[in-house]
Design a binder for these strands. Sequence first.
DNA 1: CCCTTCTTTTGAGTCATTCACGATTAGGGC
DNA 2: GCCCTAATCGTGAATGACTCAAAAGAAGGG
Lengths: 167, 167
Amino acid sequence: MNVDEELRASGLRVTVGRRALLELLTDSPHADAESVRRGLMAAGHDTSVQSVHNMLADLTAAGLLRRIEPERSPARYERRVADNHHHAVCRSCGAVADVDCAVGYAPCLEPSDTAGFEIDTADVVFWGTCPACAEARRDAVLPDNASSAPGPRTDGAPHGAPLRPAP
Amino acid sequence: MNVDEELRASGLRVTVGRRALLELLTDSPHADAESVRRGLMAAGHDTSVQSVHNMLADLTAAGLLRRIEPERSPARYERRVADNHHHAVCRSCGAVADVDCAVGYAPCLEPSDTAGFEIDTADVVFWGTCPACAEARRDAVLPDNASSAPGPRTDGAPHGAPLRPAP
DNA sequence: CCCTTCTTTTGAGTCATTCACGATTAGGGC
DNA sequence: GCCCTAATCGTGAATGACTCAAAAGAAGGG
């Protein structure tokens, strides 16, 4: 099913903007609204920030896009919908990568005490350092002394749950 | 260790505002900045929104508070730090509840393919309906016909991974 | 080809948060 | 107890990311 068919199947009209946006997000997943606008401009589509937000909202509501909101970062959008995958976010540069749920069957995602909530989905965000930033940090520390080199940010106390707290 | 001692241990000065804020968050966890300000005002502490943000940022940086950012919601703060627990968020009213990681040892939080990221923590957010909203929905549907009663919102396509996709 | 309806655009407005900086205060030293 | 200095608070303005409203513009069934 190509982009046009996806749009029609969702009851949405096919427009150049929507087609271009979906194609852009196919190549550049996890882009935020501003990146999308720049990408569209670069592809020759003169559009406004508001229109981009408009399209993103419509396509997300139609289920063609998934919106993710990493903390301290603008919302990002991706075309991978309807499968269960999570995300890894880099503390230094904010890069986002897909992380498949290796198990598929997640014991920890079925907590025993949910305070009475009727839970239907679980979002998992992994925090860490992306390969590029990890290398940049090593490069910044080794040649020079361990000063505050112009490398990636290393601030920000880790939040969330430490991995594998205690078996 | 009481509030004053916690502040001093973190190298922060003890002020009425900080003490009041920490005590407020002890009783009302998961409050956002505006709720905190209202709470402080109600307790007789005339303060500004900016000061509240100021204090929240300082205390979070000092590790006395943990900041959580549910999607589509302002940031919330809680005093439970340094233990691994997650959160359940109500799609209808935005209520937040703590969810202990029942397992403590989480297989799914150690994905096999992390795209080269050096992962250190995992945030899990459970989405669902809180007890109050679930009851309100039942009350709204049963007596009347199944129209759009003035109950809680039920919009918003579920995002994230469905629980227990397929063992 | 036309008309209705959905989309995009334009512009303004909102919300949560941050920045800059002078006024105030905590708390160690005297 | 008083003073001094740096930490903290308050005020005002500014920012980023997004939302709202209404007019102008296309998509596509008839």
